[in-house]
Design a protein around this nucleic acid. Sequence first.
DNA 1: AACTTCCGCAACCGCATACCT
DNA 2: GAGGTATGCGGTTGCGGAAGT
Length: 304
Amino acid sequence: MAASQRSRSSDGDDHHRGESPEEEQQLELRRGPWTVDEDLTLVNYIADHGEGRWNSLARAAGLKRTGKSCRLRWLNYLRPDVKRGNFTADEQLLILDLHTRWGNRWSKIAQHLPGRTDNEIKNYWRTRVQKHAKQLNCDANSKRFKDAMRYLWMPHLADADDHRRRLLHAHHHHHTSDFFSSATAAAAAGIVVTMPTTSSSDSLATAESYDDGTAGIYPSFHAAGEEMLVGGGAAAGEWAAPKTSQERTMWPSAAAVAEQSTAVIQAAGGGGQFEDPELSGWVQGFSEGITENFWALEDIWKMQ
DNA sequence: AACTTCCGCAACCGCATACCT
DNA sequence: GAGGTATGCGGTTGCGGAAGT
C-alpha cells in the first residue's frame, strides 16, 4: 500500500503516560501508514541495536510512533524473513488444517508457516475463507463448512498444487519443478529432503503432528509421528528444522493427498462418512470427475 | 471517462498476560 | 503480593486500488 501522510489525532492511545503537555506536543505521535523514511529509520536502528524494548526503541530512534506501532511494523512488514505474496496451495491447506484444530489462534498457526505473520493469516481467513462460508450460507466454524473444506476444498487445493507442479515440469525444466517431483517421490519413500532456498513461494513447514500431540487432518498421508520445530528464527526460504535430520520430510505429496482424498470422497459418497446427509449427497455428485478436472472453488459451491 | 461499489490489507484498538520493581 | 510497564494476541477499522456500472 502506498504510504500516505495521513495523520490522526492520538486520542485513546495507551502510551501517553506521564508527559507534560509540552513534551506531548513535541512528541506528537504519528499514526497511519509508515513512510519510507520511517521504515529506514526503524530498520537501521534495529540493525544497530537489535529489537525489543519497543517504547524506548521508538524514542531512541527518533520515531514519532508508539512502541506498539514500531513492533507491529517490524514484525509484520520489515523483518527480513517476512514472506510476501499469495499463499501457496500447501500453505492454504495447512491453514485450513490448523484452523480446524485450533480455531482463531492466529499466532499459533503462524508459527507453523515460516515467514508468514499472524496478521496475514488472519486477513486470509477473514477475506477468503469466511467469504466462502458466507456464500455457502453457513458459519465458518460450523461442522458443515469444515466438512466442505476437508473433503472438497482441501483436495481441490492439493489437486491444484499438483496440477501447477506438473505444468511447471512440462513447460520448463526449472529446478523448482524438478525439485518437487523428486521431493514428492522421496517423501513418499520417507527420504530426507531439503528445500532449495531459491524457491520463494513454496517453503513451508510440514505438520505431521503438532505440539498438542494430535495428528494432522490427513493422518494417513503423513509419515509417522515426528514433531517439527517450526517458526521462530527460520530464515526466508528455509525449512524449519525438525528434531533430527532423519525426520525431515516433505509436506505430503500433493498428488498423494489428491488420490487419497478422492478415495475418501468416494467412500463418503458411498455413505457413512458424513453426518450431514445433505453434504454427503453433494459430495457424491461432486466426486465424479474430481481427478481429471481442475476445480474452481466457485464450481464446487455451484454444485450444492 | 466518471462514478460507485467491492475487497484486500496495513494498522489500529482493547484486553490479557508476562515481566519488572 | 501489589502496582506499573512491556509485550503479545485477536478483533476491527478504514484507506486505496481494482472491478463493475
